[in-house]
Write a protein that binds this DNA or RNA. Structure first.
Lengths: 300, 300
DNA sequence: ACTTTCTTTGTAGGCTGCCTACATGGACGT
DNA sequence: ACGTCCATGTAGGCAGCCTACAAAGAAAGT
């Protein structure tokens, strides 16, 4: 029972196509295809079957892919114990994080890890809430967010909750509402909004406002980038939902908490179980947790 | 982290020398030595150090060897699940058993497994009690015996108790003691004995007799083979300790239970944890257990 | 002290297996 | 019907692992 064959099946299960596996493992599709046939010969059973333009695993292939996950965990534990023995958690830890969370987490993490021989490679990632989980196949740690505290996750991933961040209402400093300490759904429902694309967590605040008032709000723009949203808010009479920890830099935009409903997002880390075994990965995860904890008291 | 390297270190830990690993894995010592250096390059640390004529693992090497055991278990579980999925536990199961236990267990086991695609390869093995455990590196299942119920075993082996077998006193059919239903230590202590080498479980009966009478018995011969012991007993006035389940075939030797002290041996199976995961191995182990259970009621 | 023996290690060379490059064929969408 | 995308087949190159042989070091016997 060859570990390489198991790993191949696991990759194929995760990525769904020969070409995807090939690019992920830096090989040609031909090589992957040959390895597949070699695996089928070794196991003595068909492991893939044609499916439309591509192919998919048979039941037999999925059984082996599931076992491959356990083997990967055992192997990662071995590596973790080895790092432990050598007293050093080192290596490259790849991170994919939504930009607004990375903004308030990453500087602290890098400061905390300054003395460790760990290189953190962070990519920012701004996708719909449901799409974050899929990124664990390409990154050690995925920092995601959700309106709910415990998002769905698969069998071989683990989720660590980092912090709940309040979502406030941003408006121009000269906006009529800016004189208030806090704003209510009724204050907001008739104003023009700078919103986010459908499926993004901030949208839950808009839905809650609509729920509370029984009326629809007027979403004029749907943008992902918070700095862009700020600029739009600062330049006009729009309001927008913005996370509190990355408060606007300039003086022309202010944040006001939303009264009457609990508006917040949960920021958490998603890891694949085998990757989570690595000592360096745990170290980064702990740093994320402790940096996030510094923000927790302010969560109100 | 290469699985082959881990397996190599594990083998080296188990067998203690490059040449032993080489013969066990059907390679030349040169190949093993080269792989060791390759592993040291890969792990970036010395894994072996010279020790007398041979060499031994460093602490680092032992850490990796320990992890290798866990990886081996995960891999064996994968194989077990694969067999499960295909609905067939097949393959070769190698058995090493002490002859007197194999005599009453193996026929039943082979009968029970007649319809299974499992080939049982049994070697008989007659060594001192402490030496059985070492055989697990070469066989899937080792059937051993001991005077005590739960013998010592290492971290990565499991032990399953099979049956307690009474040990009786054998004597010629015409022996004066043969008229008795049972014999006592006092009856035996002055007779010439056919014993076993030191360290063999039957010797515990001699020790118990000496303990009970306060006198030493006269051991004339020390033989391993029970048939040979029978022949010696049948031909003279000697007595011998023999297990009950493999009763003498002929009419010229009879068995009499020993009164006044609990004389028995425990027969059990020893397995390495990774080998124990294999479905075919479990099947054979279960067959051993059920065959042994048929003898248990007679254990009195 | 010398030799024998057992062990590990080095070197050269062959073989196997994996991968790339390129070409082919099937399935889907336009 | 065509282009596109995906998987697969073939030929050849390259690396890695192994064997055969030679050599060196350490222990034990003479």
């Amino acid at each position: 029972m060859d570990v390489r064959h198991l790993e191949l099946l696991r990759e194929l299960d995760d990525r769904g196509s020969v070409t995807a596996v090939a690019t992920a493992t830096h090989r040609t599709p031909s090589a992957v295809s040959q390895q597949l046939r070699s695996a089928e010969r070794a196991f003595g059973a068909p492991l893939v079957e044609p499916r439309g333009r591509g192919l998919r695993l048979t039941d037999a292939g999925r059984v082996l892919a599931a076992s491959a996950r356990d083997v990967a965990v055992a192997l990662a534990q071995a590596e973790a114990r080895w790092d432990e023995f050598r007293g050093r958690a080192s290596g490259v830890v790849s991170l994919a994080a939504l930009p607004s969370a990375a903004t308030f987490l990453l500087p602290g993490v890098l400061r905390e890890l300054a003395d460790d021989p760990i290189e953190v490679v962070c990519t920012d990632l701004d996708v719909a809430e449901a799409a974050y989980a899929a990124e664990v196949v390409d990154h050690d740690i995925v920092v995601a967010h959700s309106a709910i505290r415990t998002p769905a996750h698969t069998e071989d991933t683990v989720v660590r909750h980092l912090v709940r961040e309040p979502l406030d209402i941003a408006m121009a400093a000269g906006h009529p509402l800016a004189v208030l300490d806090r704003v209510t759904p009724d204050d907001l429902v008739d104003l023009p909004w700078v919103g986010v694309p459908l499926g993004y967590p901030f949208d839950s605040v808009r839905l809650a406002v609509e729920e509370a008032t029984g009326r629809g709000v007027d979403v004029r723009q749907r943008v992902r980038d918070n700095r862009l949203a700020e600029a739009l808010v600062g330049a006009g009479d729009h309001v927008a939902v913005l996370p509190r920890f990355t408060a606007p830099a300039g003086d022309d935009v202010v944040l006001r908490p939303l009264a009457g409903l609990a508006s917040g997002r949960h920021v958490f880390a998603i890891l694949r179980k085998d990757r989570a075994e690595r000592r360096a990965v745990r170290r980064v995860l702990d740093a994320l947790t402790s940096v996030a904890a510094e923000f927790a008291p302010a969560a109100g």
